[in-house]
């Protein structure tokens, strides 16, 4: 019992440790807060947006932001070329970006998880075929795919999501497969086999839970990438139809006025950068949090 007493003194309590862990990575914490804020705003868009994002008012078109001498607090971030409220458009635009990012990642990771697990677990010829197809997919330039699909099926949010989902799946396949191979060789899986465990048990009780950590981390990075690319496609006029407020579309529209009304392009650009940044920070933070080695070392 005396040993226990010796153990505890000088050791931080779990709460202290958790706080220290969170506070240690200041950048990560910033990312978490920023990301949380963006999500909340996107979800509550109808309540927080001051104006209707598609309501045009040509009389006040290209009004500068509020802190400019010609601006007004009625439109804090000013208006675009058609007199629509920038702030409201950015708030609504976040819904498109987040939807694309979220659903894209869900599709990509579901496909990746399934095929990666099959490839890694079954192995042999099946593995070779799945990985062959995955590599083939990686070789297709996604931009070309988008142009073709947009030309054939028209511009729609769903198409963009599906394309992102499919083109990003190979990455998840690879990562899942690698992890499965590693976990399958690990002692605890071998020991479960030695106990006579069924395949299902090994897959769902041992392999799957240990996949979540690495995949979650990759997913956040991928999501940030998708948001970025969606904006890029919007800028090229290949994403959602022009009527829908999206950051890419706004950026494209602002391009013509960049010289005299730079805010029209600048604010959506800033939003894209902030969202991407917050997700990258979040990814780093998650990775550290889930890695016991890093979690327990340097302060």
């Amino acid at each position: 019992m005396r040993i226990d007493a010796l153990d505890k003194s000088g050791l931080r309590s779990p709460l202290q440790r958790f706080l220290k862990l969170i506070l240690r990575d200041k950048a990560g914490l910033f990312g978490v807060i920023l990301f949380g804020f963006i999500i909340v705003v996107a979800v509550l868009a109808p309540y927080v947006a001051p104006h209707d994002p598609v309501q045009q008012n040509l009389r006040i078109s290209r009004q500068p932001p509020a802190w400019h001498e010609d601006g007004s607090w009625e439109h804090p971030l000013g208006t675009d070329n058609l007199g629509r409220d920038m702030l409201s458009r950015i708030i609504y635009g976040s819904r498109v970006s987040l939807t694309v990012g979220f659903l894209g990642v869900v599709i990509a990771s579901s496909i990746g998880l399934l095929l990666g697990m099959v490839a890694g677990y079954v192995g042999g010829r099946t593995d070779n075929i799945i990985m062959g197809v995955a590599n083939l997919f990686l070789a297709i330039p996604y931009l070309l795919l988008v142009v073709v699909v947009a030309a054939v099926l028209g511009r729609s949010l769903l198409n963009v999501i599906l394309i992102f989902g499919f083109t990003n799946a190979p990455l998840f396949v690879r990562i899942t497969r690698g992890e499965v191979l590693r976990i399958r060789k690990s002692g605890y899986v071998e020991s479960a086999i030695g106990l006579g465990a069924s395949q299902a048990r090994i897959l769902f009780d041992h392999i799957l839970p240990n996949l979540i950590g690495p995949l979650l981390t990759v997913a956040t990075f991928e999501m940030s990438g998708m948001i970025f690319y969606e904006a890029g496609l919007g800028f090229l006029g290949l994403s959602v139809p022009p009527g829908i407020p999206s950051w890419g579309n706004m950026l494209a529209a602002g391009r013509q006025y960049i010289q005299f009304s730079p805010w029209i392009a600048a604010f959506p650009g800033l939003a894209i950068v902030c969202t991407s940044l917050s997700m990258n920070l979040l990814g780093d933070w998650l990775r550290d949090l889930l890695d016991p080695k890093i979690r327990r070392s340097a302060s």
Binding site: L11, R296, S297, S299
Partner: peptide, 13 residues
């Protein structure tokens, strides 16, 4: 002589 080395970790010193 009398070397002391500490590591500052999340769990404590």
């Amino acid at each position: 002589r009398d070397l002391h080395v500490h590591f500052d970790t999340v769990d404590g010193t």
